[in-house]
């Protein structure tokens, strides 16, 4: 059976200008308890890959360059 892709708004946004993942930083990826962040192979910066956000904010708080913003997922907002 084919698998459908249901779109949903990603709560975590990462400012590629500020992100220093390409310099070896993996802070947000390490600290996400849900493990939903990855390096985007297209630009070497971090991005959200899975819509499984607990909006707990370590990614935003621990980011050394303040590149991460988290919105409350729309269903709860």
């Amino acid at each position: 059976m084919p698998i459908a892709n249901n779109p949903s708004e990603m709560p975590v946004k990462i400012d590629a200008e500020k992100c220093i993942a390409d310099k070896g930083c993996t802070v947000c990826i390490d600290v996400c308890p849900l493990d939903v962040l990855r390096i985007n192979p297209a630009n070497g910066k971090a991005h959200m890959r899975y819509d499984e956000c607990w909006y707990c904010l370590p990614c935003a708080i621990d980011c050394p360059t303040k590149a991460v913003t988290v919105a409350i997922p729309y269903l709860l907002r």
Binding site: D30, V31, C32, P33, C56
Partner: peptide, 12 residues
Amino acid sequence: KANVKRSGAIAI
């Protein structure tokens, strides 16, 4: 299963 730095009920 996550990372000890920020995991569990008191992650934050």
